[in-house]
């Protein structure tokens, strides 16, 4: 259908939990695919934007230079950009490393941690591998973010309410019970 809106999604420094939550809208998925077409997204495995998107959903914060590039690409190609979930909004769990020197993080991950290969003394690095940033940033410190969906993950109902509201042009305030967590 020609009037389907285009949606793009990505998981930066996230755990894909927010994407899982999106799939959790269950039968409403059928309604959703009537309304939208997914372009660049892990759901379609499209790696480059093929057309301009109306909505971009960002899961996860920004922890390496590739995340920066992808996020900028999303900003360039999406009319509306939404930070989905705690990591995109505030850095989340990955941001716990922000107070630990990078060197210690790398040592723990590749040399001394329980999952490190015994006897191996190599920290992976290559021009093709992303460079880790000095700290994990929330998305809105890199590009302009239009909306925020809080939660870890945001509930399926919240994602549905926001998406369907935006798509129908009738997005008002989101119900309090969907965004209240304490």
């Amino acid at each position: 259908m020609a009037d389907k809106k285009v949606v793009a999604t990505v998981s930066l420094a996230g755990c894909f939990g927010c994407h899982m939550s999106m799939l959790d809208i269950d039968l409403r998925l059928l309604d959703l695919v009537q309304l939208v077409r997914f372009d660049r997204s892990p759901l379609t495995d499209i790696k480059k934007f093929t057309e301009r998107a109306a909505i971009g959903l960002i899961e996860g914060g920004v922890c390496n230079d590739e995340n920066v590039h992808v996020l900028r690409e999303f900003r360039l190609n999406c009319d509306v950009l939404i930070s989905v979930g705690e990591c995109a909004i505030m850095g989340g769990l990955p941001a716990l490393r922000n107070d630990i020197p990078l060197r210690e993080c790398l040592e723990e991950a590749y040399l001394t941690g329980p999952t490190a290969v015994q006897g191996q003394r190599i920290i992976p690095h290559h021009v093709d591998l992303p460079k880790i940033l000095d700290r994990v940033y929330p998305c809105h410190e890199i590009v302009k973010i239009d909306y925020y969906l809080p939660g870890c993950p945001p509930s399926a109902d919240l994602i549905w309410a926001a998406l369907s509201g935006l798509l129908s042009g009738k997005l008002d305030t989101l119900p309090r019970e969907l965004v209240k967590y304490d």
């Binding site: 230079d65 920066v68 900028r72 900003r75 990078l102 060197r103 790398l106 920290i123 690095h125 460079k131 880790i132 940033l133 000095d134 700290r135 940033y137 410190e141 890199i142 590009v143 302009k144």
Partner: peptide
Amino acid sequence: LFFDFNEKAATADYDRTI
């Protein structure tokens, strides 16, 4: 829509550490 973000400065620590 794009904010000031000094990528070079943000990855300098990584380059040095490696």
